[in-house]
Deep mutational scan, measured.
Amino acid sequence: MDVFMKGLSKAKEGVVAAAEKTKQGVAEAAGKTKEGVLYVGSKTKEGVVHGVATVAEKTKEQVTNVGGAVVTGVTAVAQKTVEGAGSIAAATGFVKKDQLGKNEEGAPQEGILEDMPVDPDNEAYEMPSEEGYQDYEPEA
Rank of each mutant, 00 (worst) to 15 (best):
V15F: 02
K58P: 01
N122A: 04
K10Q: 04
E110V: 08
V48R: 01
E139W: 06
G14C: 12
H50E: 06
Y133I: 03
M5S: 03
G93W: 11
A30M: 15
I88H: 02
A140P: 11
V63R: 02
T59N: 01
E13I: 04
D98E: 11
D115Y: 10
Q134I: 08
E114Q: 06
T72I: 07
K10P: 00
Q79S: 09
P138R: 05
P108M: 11
A85H: 03
I112Q: 05
V16G: 03
T54G: 07
E114V: 13
V82S: 04
V70Q: 01
M127V: 12
G31E: 07
G41W: 08
A89W: 15
K23H: 05
Y133M: 10
V49M: 13
T92F: 15
F4N: 00
V82N: 03
S9I: 13
L38N: 04
T75H: 14
E139F: 14
Y39L: 11
L8M: 08
E126W: 03
A78G: 05
P108E: 14
N122D: 09
M127Q: 09
E131T: 10
D119N: 06
G132E: 11
V26P: 00
V118P: 12
E110M: 08
P117K: 08
Y136G: 06
K80A: 12
A78P: 02
V82Y: 09
P120V: 05
D119L: 10
M127T: 04
G7C: 15
V63D: 01
M127H: 07
T22C: 08
V26L: 12
S87P: 04
E123A: 05
A11L: 14
V77K: 02
G47F: 14
V70S: 01
A19K: 02
V49F: 09
V40I: 11
T54M: 15
A76Y: 15
V82L: 12
E20D: 07
E130G: 13
E126C: 13
A91T: 05
A29M: 14
Q99G: 13
V77C: 11
P138C: 08
E104N: 12
G84C: 13
V77L: 13
D121P: 09
E137W: 04
V66Q: 01
K12M: 15
V40Q: 00
K21W: 09
A11W: 15
G86W: 15
D121H: 11
E13M: 12
T72L: 12
Y125M: 03
Q134G: 14
K96I: 03
V77E: 02
K10R: 13
G86Q: 12
G41Q: 06
A11S: 02
V118T: 03
E61D: 08
N122R: 13
A124K: 15
G67N: 04
G86K: 11
I112M: 06
E105N: 10
G132P: 04
A53N: 11
K45D: 00
V71N: 03
Q24I: 11
E130Y: 07
A29P: 00
A124N: 05
P120L: 08
N65P: 02
E20H: 14
G25Q: 15
E130D: 07
K80C: 08
A19Q: 01
V48K: 01
E20Y: 13
K43Q: 03
V52K: 01
E126T: 06
G25F: 15
K97V: 15
E126V: 11
T33R: 01
T72M: 15
S9C: 09
E126L: 06
E126S: 05
A19V: 10
V40G: 01
G84K: 12
L38G: 02
N122L: 05
V26K: 00
V63W: 15
V48A: 04
A91L: 12
Q109Y: 10
S9A: 04
I88P: 02
A69T: 04
L38C: 09
L113T: 08
